[in-house]
Design a protein around this nucleic acid. Structure first.
Length: 452
RNA sequence: GGCGGCGUGACCGAGUGGCUCAGGUAGCGGCCUGCAAAGCCGUUUACACGGGUUCGAUUCCCGUCGCCGCCUCCA
C-alpha cells in the first residue's frame, strides 16, 4: 500500500483515498505571467510521476491543475508592456503547455482558470464574512486567520510564532499581520469583477479552494505543490475551507526545491532557470531523470554537469531499448518479482531513487543475459525494465524513425562492403554517416542506426 | 528572532547502527569486435569537523563550521 508524507501530519502515512479505487488530486498550477522556470518543472514532474504510478497501480485518477490567470503579477506586466492582461495570460499558458508537453508531463484532466470562477469565489467570501471569518477594509476583504483553531498546521508553526515572524509592511486595517486578502478592490484601470464590496478581483488563495471543491468535491484525496506553497498558500486555502465548514484535502504532499548554483551555473551556460531553455538545450527527459534520481522531498541541484550526466544515462537506456526491440527477447512478460520490487520502492513514499536503481540493475542484468545469449533470462527482465521506465514517464527511443533515405543507402552499401571485407570502404562510409549525425552499430542482425 | 533542511568517493546522488551493497556520469584497465559503437567485467583510503552514547557509528545524541529554504501572495 502506498505511503506518503503528509505535510499536515508531519509524517509518512498510509494513503487512503476517499473512494476505493479512485484518486482525486489537485496540484497547484502556474500563475501565467512569464515563462515557466525549473521549479515549475520539478513539481510538474513529481506529480506526473505520482499520477502515472497511481494509474499503473490500478487507480482511476482525476488530476486537476489550475491556471491562475488573474493576479497582480499579470496586471503589472500588462501595465509595463502596455498589453492586454488577458493576452499575456493566454500566451503564457500556451508556453506553459508547450514546456509541459516537452517534458512529457501528461495534461491534467481539468485545468480550471481562476477567471471562470470569480462568482463562486465571491460567494465563498460572502459566506466567510457572514460567519465572521472575514472582514472588509478600505482596500479589500481579509480573512481573519485567528478564527481557525489550527491555523499554522501546514506551516507547522503555531499562530503566535507566525505573527511574530510576519513582515511588517502590512496594512494598518488588518486585524492581525497573518490575515490575508480574499478580495482586492480595484484601482482605476485594473481588471475587475462586481462584488458586494465593489469592483475588484479575488485574492490568490481563494481560487484553489473553490475550484478544487467544485471539481473534486469535499474531502478530496490529495493536494500537492512545491514546498513553498505549504505556507502561506495552502495554509490559507485550508483556513478558508475550514471556516466555510467544508472538508478539504485528506493528504498534503509537497516537493522540495530546485537549487541552481548561481555563479557556476550561469558561467557555464548562461542561466538555465527557464524551462524552455532547458528543454531546448538538453534532452527534456534529462530533467525528468534528474528529478527521479533524488527523492521528491529533497532539494535538487540543476546544473549543466547533472543534466549532461543524465543525458549519458538516457543514452544507455535508449541503447538498451533498441537492443531489446531488435532481439528475440522482445515482447516477454515482465518479471513479476522485479515489478514487486518497483512497487515496494514507490509505495514507500515514492522512492524513485530506488526505483531508478532497480531500472538500471535490470538493464544491466538483461544486457548481460543477452550477451550470454540467454533469451529466457533476458526477456522478463528487459520487459520489467521497459515497463518501469514507462511508468516513470521515461519514453525510450528504439527507433531510426526519420533517417534520410540517403543515409540508409550508405548503411546498405557499408553492409555490402563489410560482407566483402572491404574495410577501407566500410570505414569511409561510416565517416560519411557520422558526418551526417548518425552512429552505426553493427549487430549480429545487421547495422543499426541512431542519432548521435 | 522563529521554523525546517542539507554537508557522502573525480562529479552527481540514494541509503543504513555491524552483513563488499546503492545507482548514474566521467576516467582508466580488460573481454567482445576487422576497427568502432553498444554491451559485459574490474577499478580509485566515501560518508564536513570535534566530542559523546554503544561491544561497534557514515547512520543515534550534543556542539562547531559551512550551505540553503520558509516566516503574506514565490512551485
Amino acid at each position: 500500500m502506498l505511503q506518503l508524507f503528509d505535510t499536515a501530519k508531519g509524517s509518512v502515512v498510509p494513503f487512503q483515498p476517499r473512494e476505493p479505487g479512485k484518486v482525486s488530486m489537485y496540484v497547484c498550477g502556474p500563475t501565467v505571467y512569464g515563462p515557466p522556470h525549473l521549479g515549475h518543472g520539478r513539481f510538474s514532474l513529481v506529480f506526473d510521476v505520482l499520477r502515472r504510478y497511481l494509474r499503473w497501480s490500478g487507480y482511476e485518477v482525476t488530476y486537476v491543475s489550475n491556471i491562475t490567470d488573474i493576479d497582480d503579477k499579470i496586471i503589472d506586466r500588462a501595465k509595463r508592456e502596455q498589453r492586454d492582461w488577458r493576452e499575456i495570460a493566454r500566451r503564457c499558458e500556451e508556453v506553459w503547455y508547450r514546456a509541459m508537453d516537452a517534458l512529457g508531463v501528461q495534461r491534467p484532466d481539468h485545468d480550471p482558470h481562476a477567471t471562470d470562477y470569480v462568482e463562486q469565489m465571491v460567494a465563498l467570501v460572502e459566506r466567510l464574512v457572514a460567519r465572521g471569518a472575514a472582514y472588509e477594509t478600505s482596500d479589500g476583504v481579509y480573512f481573519a486567520a485567528e478564527t481557525v483553531d489550527d491555523y499554522g498546521l501546514l506551516a507547522r508553526q503555531p499562530l503566535e510564532t507566525l505573527k511574530a515572524g510576519a513582515r511588517v509592511e502590512t496594512i494598518e486595517e488588518k486585524r492581525s499581520p497573518v490575515d490575508f486578502a480574499l478580495w482586492k478592490k480595484a484601482k482605476p484601470g485594473e481588471p475587475s469583477w462586481p462584488s458586494p464590496w465593489g469592483e475588484g478581483r479575488p485574492g490568490w488563495h481563494t481560487e484553489c479552494v473553490v475550484m478544487s471543491l467544485d471539481i473534486l468535491g469535499e474531502d478530496f484525496d490529495l493536494h500537492g505543490g512545491g514546498q513553498d506553497l505549504a505556507f502561506p498558500h495552502h495554509e490559507n486555502e485550508r483556513a478558508q475551507a475550514v471556516a466555510d465548514g467544508r472538508r478539504f484535502a485528506r493528504t498534503w504532499v509537497h516537493n522540495g526545491f530546485v537549487e541552481v548554483e548561481g555563479t557556476k551555473m550561469s558561467k557555464s551556460l548562461g542561466n538555465v532557470r527557464n524551462l524552455l531553455d532547458l528543454v531546448e538545450q538538453y534532452d527534456p527527459r534529462a530533467y525528468r531523470l534528474l528529478v527521479l534520481q533524488s527523492h521528491y522531498r529533497s532539494p535538487i541541484d540543476v546544473s549543466d554537469a547533472n543534466l549532461r550526466a543524465a543525458e549519458g544515462a538516457l543514452d544507455r537506456l535508449d541503447a538498451f531499448a533498441r537492443r531489446v526491440a531488435a532481439s528475440p527477447a522482445a515482447g516477454a512478460e515482465p518479471d513479476p518479482e522485479a515489478l514487486e520490487q518497483f512497487r515496494a520502492a514507490m509505495d514507500d513514499d515514492l522512492q524513485t531513487p530506488a526505483a531508478t536503481r532497480l531500472l538500471f540493475d535490470l538493464v544491466r542484468q538483461a544486457n548481460a543475459a543477452l550477451d550470454a545469449g540467454d533469451v529466457a533470462a533476458a526477456g522478463p527482465r528487459a520487459a520489467a525494465a521497459l515497463e518501469i521506465a514507462s511508468v516513470l514517464g521515461l519514453e525510450l527511443s528504439t527507433g531510426e524513425e526519420d533517417v534520410p533515405e540517403e543515409v540508409r543507402a550508405w548503411v546498405r552499401e557499408r553492409d555490402e562492403a563489410r560482407a566483402a571485407r572491404d574495410w577501407a570502404r566500410a570505414d569511409a562510409l561510416r565517416d560519411r554517416i557520422t558526418a551526417a549525425g548518425y552512429v552505426v552499430e553493427d549487430t549480429p542482425t545487421g547495422a543499426v542506426l541512431r542519432r548521435a
